[in-house]
Nucleic acid binder design. Structure first.
Lengths: 331, 331
DNA sequence: CTGGTCAGTGTAACCGGTTACACCGCTGGT
DNA sequence: ACCAGCGGTGTAACCGGTTACACTGACCAG
């Protein structure tokens, strides 16, 4: 900037004002500065700007993984909302490791105005300890009540969704309904499993030997599907804790010559965009993923704008059952 | 930091040295500083650090969209590679608009050490004009030769992949092979279409009425599939310019009572992770998406480390045909 | 003619760190 | 006894912008 100022024969203050419309600049001067800036390919240094302005116009996002349809959707929702509020996104994958979350959070300090954190296993306490005191944070799908005022919590109604799916399958006459569980340490996964168990129990049915461990990947779904296909008392329905595992399970069941939904009915969770295009279209529990992102950004935007700590709230978004062909329900 | 220094009874220099191991600090002093820092929840301001150090340990990523399996995979590849090199990721979606690309690029200045840009329609020139002169940039899938020394180009062999797929379908005896084209302005899409046309022509076959416009989405694939199903001289095979459209097309064809691959053979492009789990598993052209990310980060890392402009290169990664069941080839 | 207003501009402090350099006191070799 | 070397520490300049404040000259109302 100093170079631009010198070459244009003005001071840095004038250049700054010219670029930000933050004060009167003579027409001639403005033109001269703009020409020189282009010539020198001057682009303001955002780090310096945010240092001085204390505003970065950037939101940080920390998610366990960048992989898969769910996070892709989430990121899209966040991106859209962020753009609408004129924010940029600084993204980090934490890969579930506490050290990496720590590093990711610390790397955000001073570079973001607010933070969206999805933390499967790490406590809110750990998050706070690695962040500057007054930074607004929205936690996605957190189990515990937030520890401080700056933490806001946004989750989805896992239990209601899982219960609805289980009841739906029960309503179709299924008795042996298997569950492909998600990553054990994950809160969402645990909730879905719990609701499945409770709903089955409420119907007087046992879940012994019907719960298969998984980790939310297609591969885990495939492996579970294979084991399931070989069972003596084969379940007549499968409720996967997410759509990716449902896809994997269907693939394995098909490979074993079983028809969906005739031989085995299948339901998923998340309702990823792809679900409706699968064959058969996948019955799933719709999660308003993009709304999750939109709400998170919204909350942060308000807190940042007002420069006031986030009033600690806990919001749970509803989930809805979306019936398609994979469960064998009549159209 | 000043507060920490005062409370610990030392100067800011000592606090800095303590945090970065950049100089000797007495054992007692170190303990005292660490205790105070934790108490005050002091986290160093990265913006200030990078301003002084001129290093940000962050790579910028500008992609047309954050949505879909392809970008999800790309982001994952970039994230993995970045982590391996101890870099963070600053992500922006450009949404194909020139203004947004401009804004995204300008927002990166001073916040990243290097940049990965995927620019479907915008010229390398536009990119350079909105970036500081010496910033290393890797262009993903760019058409033109880069304009400057700092621009590196990384692409995939679209033509070879599309030709291989077309030849494969021809080899299975198909004559009326339709093509679901990607976004018209997109370079990859154009290349795939061109190679398809040339391969068909080389086999003495016409492509009149066999090319359907699309935009890389499942929905576009579905719509094309519907039109295709209703055709009098229905194509016996479909080559979609990406897997998402293949999925959509399959869904539509199935909805019209057609069997895959018996009635219509289908091939895709990208080989997204899901492809193998579809029913039937999708024949596709494998694109080393994660390697794309890894290579890009690698190149940037070298240029940053050496603090020398990127020797302008143009690298094209090979693509390979992956035959699965959706094309009806014998196992 | 004078004082106030305002467009247009420059000077310098400041944001929050890093680091070159200076300084002090102690140890140990000669 | 003297000086080099080193551990431990402080001072202040610097990174690249923003902005409060001061200043100048033109214009205008009283």
């Amino acid at each position: 900037m100093y170079d631009v100022a010198r070459k244009a024969g003005v001071s840095v203050a004038t250049v700054s004002r010219c670029f930000n419309d933050s004060g009167p600049v003579g027409e001639q001067t403005r033109l001269r500065i703009e020409r020189v800036a282009e010539e020198l390919r001057f682009v303001p240094n955002r780090a310096a700007q945010s240092l001085r302005a204390v505003r970065t116009h950037t939101l940080g996002v920390v998610v366990p993984d960048l992989h898969g349809a769910f996070f892709s959707e989430l990121l899209r929702g966040l991106d859209q909302a962020a753009r609408a509020h004129r924010y940029h996104l600084l993204v980090a994958g934490s890969h579930g490791s506490k050290d990496e979350i720590r590093a990711a959070l610390r790397s955000m300090s001073g570079r973001v105005d607010g933070l969206v954190v999805m933390n499967p296993d790490v406590s809110a306490f750990t998050i706070e300890a690695n962040l500057p005191p007054r930074l607004p944070v929205v936690l996605l799908g957190e189990r515990d009540r937030p520890a401080s005022e700056n933490l806001d919590t946004l989750g989805i109604d896992n239990a209601a969704g899982a219960a609805a799916m289980t009841r739906h399958l029960l309503g179709l006459g299924h008795q042996r309904i298997a569950h492909l569980a998600g990553t054990a340490s994950n809160h969402d996964a645990a909730e879905r499993l719990r609701a499945y168990r409770e709903t089955m129990a409420a119907a007087g049915l046992s879940t012994d030997g019907l719960v298969f461990e998984g980790d939310f990947t297609e591969e885990a779904g495939y492996r579970a599907g294979e084991r399931l296909a070989g069972l003596d008392a084969r379940p007549t329905a499968v409720f996967a804790a997410n759509d990716a595992m449902a896809v994997g399970a269907i693939s394995a069941l098909r490979a074993h010559g079983l028809r969906i939904p005739n031989d085995v009915a299948v339901g998923g969770f998340d309702d990823i965009p792809l679900a409706r295009y699968l064959s058969p279209p996948l019955t799933s529990v719709h999660v308003p993923i993009d709304e999750l992102g939109a709400r998170a950004v919204e909350r942060l935007g308000v807190a940042i704008e007002a420069d006031t700590p986030l009033p600690s709230r806990q919001v749970t978004l509803p989930t809805t059952l979306v019936v398609r062909a994979s469960c064998g329900a009549p159209a």
